[in-house]
Design a protein around this nucleic acid. Structure first.
Lengths: 123, 123, 123, 123
DNA sequence: GTGGTCTAGACCACC
DNA sequence: GTGGTCTAGACCACA
């Protein structure tokens, strides 16, 4: 497993888990891999995997049952959606539109690029 | 002056300078503030301001005349534009589109959200 | 059955049993539920229930008759009372007082807060 | 520096810091010892000290300035007071009174013990 | 100098 | 088997 350099590994792991939840690959109530399993499968130190889990637990996205493992929380999907949406709208969007202004790109240009992107992904 | 936590301060400073160039607030050939002036006005360590200037100098956006100061380079505007464009299209857009997919947002939603966000900030 | 996160489950179970003894719900000489019965009724791993019983047996609060079951020991009530009292006065009280000092609470406040808390729970 | 066995060291460190804030030993806006300084002075691993700081930062009690260090947050005292009070009233008090019931101790007994405790500390 | 992250490895309590 | 904590030591970016 390869990680980007521009973000802490434990955050990238957390992101991947959130995506799994958003796409229903991991459903609410499901047990997720143990820290040891995960750390082996993605080749990181158990401490790093643990950090991802602790982080998600704080956010209420997963929870722990002593001696058994971690599970996807009940309202996990809603929480993730809410967090991602807020972050996107309040943090990313303003910067995106600012950049667009500076580059003289308008919404139509973006739509075009988006269409191109979608085509590529289908191909 | 306040900075975000998610990016090095010297990069945020460099960004602001680039914006000044893109919007023609600082024109090619203009002398820009000395490291000391800048560091005082935005309340950062002179080392940090220095780092921003070194960074921009490496990119050919500004240049230094010993004992006189820093100046906006001749083709600065083009260079900045090129860099920003490449970065936006190749790095930011893919992640933006990915997030949009996960959040089930389409291009029209974007424009709408942006409008709403702008209104809120005005209020 | 739900357990707190801040203490081992087997200790919480042991505590409940002790309370049953202190309140005379379980009298000295009484047979108490088998490990299997208990583990089913409160939904814990049998190993965990077993651990609670072993722990209480070590303290002389319950005893085992092979093939028959566990029983409340003769002087169980006295032992429990003694243990609880010592623990409360020597371990808990000092920390309670320390917290009260920090929070500028006196003894009267305590009683008042407790009354308020009780009312809330009833409501 | 010695720590109790019944609680994680990083939490005990956090507690001590909170007490320093409550007693105004560390005032709002003050810079607190760097992670390295702290870890040396109390003889723990820097990672452990770091964990305490991260924990307190999440709670909004301290904050970090890049490359400079950690500082006591503006409303730190209020936050700590609020947290401690809530925890004491909602978590500790019920258990305290439950134990008092079981031990047949009443509020007057507690007051007496408290008075004794105060005398001891003065002596 | 500051903090942040990661690895490695150990030990422990618990289920 | 599970997670949780701690130590040790390294590397890095940043101010």
């Amino acid at each position: 497993m390869e990680f980007r350099q521009d973000q802490a590994i434990y955050l990238q792991i957390a992101d991947i888990i959130c995506e799994n939840i958003l796409t229903d690959s991991w459903k609410e109530g499901d047990r997720i891999p143990s820290i040891r399993e995960l750390s082996v499968s993605i080749e990181v130190n158990p401490n790093t995997a643990m950090r991802s889990y602790s982080y998600l637990q704080e956010l209420g996205i997963i929870f722990n049952q002593r001696g058994i493992g971690y599970f996807v929380a009940d309202r996990a999907r809603d929480i993730v959606l809410e967090l991602k949406k807020n972050n996107f709208i309040n943090r990313e969007l303003p910067r995106i539109f600012k950049t667009m202004d500076l580059l003289h790109l308008n919404c139509d240009d973006l739509a075009e690029l988006y269409a191109a992107h979608t085509r590529e992904n289908k191909a």
